[in-house]
Amino acid sequence: MSGSANHQFRKAKSLIASLLCSVAALLVIAPLGLIFFYLLRSGLSSLNVAFFTNLPRPVGEPGGGMANAIVGSGELLALASLIGVPVGVLGGVYLAEYGTARVNALLRFVADVLNGVPSIIWGVVVYGLIVLPFKSFSAYAGSLALGFMMIPLIMRTTEEVLLLVPGGYREAALALGISRWKTIVHIVMKTASKGIVTGVLLALARIAGETAPLLFTAFGNRFWNRSLAEPIAALPLQIFTYAISPYDDWHRQAWAGALLLVAMIFLINLLVRFLTRGRAARVA
């Protein structure tokens, strides 16, 4: 019967379609799996106590580590957050609570363009703004470059989560004679606090692995950084330096550093997952 043949044909088509989708899905997941697999295989062996506690050592001398780069990255991220979080969050508050439609459209457009600016451009800009006038690479310059990158990211996520807070809460607070500013801080932002923290964490995860903006700003340092006005080591920079070197033991260290970096980003994302769990339900 032709109906039956037709049926068979359609079944086959459906099978092929679902097969293609599965392959595509696999292609999406595979890189993550491959990266982890590769990093674990190449880097795990070098991820020892010395890696976390020692300074880098010259080629051939065993027991070198990346302690200064790990701490340096932490310092850079903390300083970058000091710039990026307040400006980004306040910008988001402006977009969600104050701005007029025209100003907001402009701000959003600018933020989206800035989000798309290649990260090396930030390095170049800060190089021109800070490094040249002060005639020195510095932790300040590095964190400024990273902070600039955080601003548009945090601004847009903050705006989005604030807009998710139902207008009824604003109305209720204002109807109690609470001032606009207190309403925003104590009611709206408090309600959206998890969302705002999530946005900050995602921005941190995004910039934690940035290398390019640090090349002309933080520059890197083989020793402990003594002043924020001096060059500072950072995990991605150290990985970059070691990876392009011709030496095998430096390569192994680079693998370990890369593994640490990916694990950190993975953990941040897990934390974000945890924070955003059930958020949709609560807002509704």
Binding site: G168, E171, A172, A175, L176, G177, T191
Partner: peptide, 20 residues
């Protein structure tokens, strides 16, 4: 207006206790 609203309270259609 904030002072006005302290003297003239309002209750809305949709109950809106602050969720936090």
């Amino acid at each position: 207006p904030a002072m006005i609203r302290r003297r003239i309270g309002m209750v809305f259609q949709k109950s809106n206790p602050f969720p936090t």
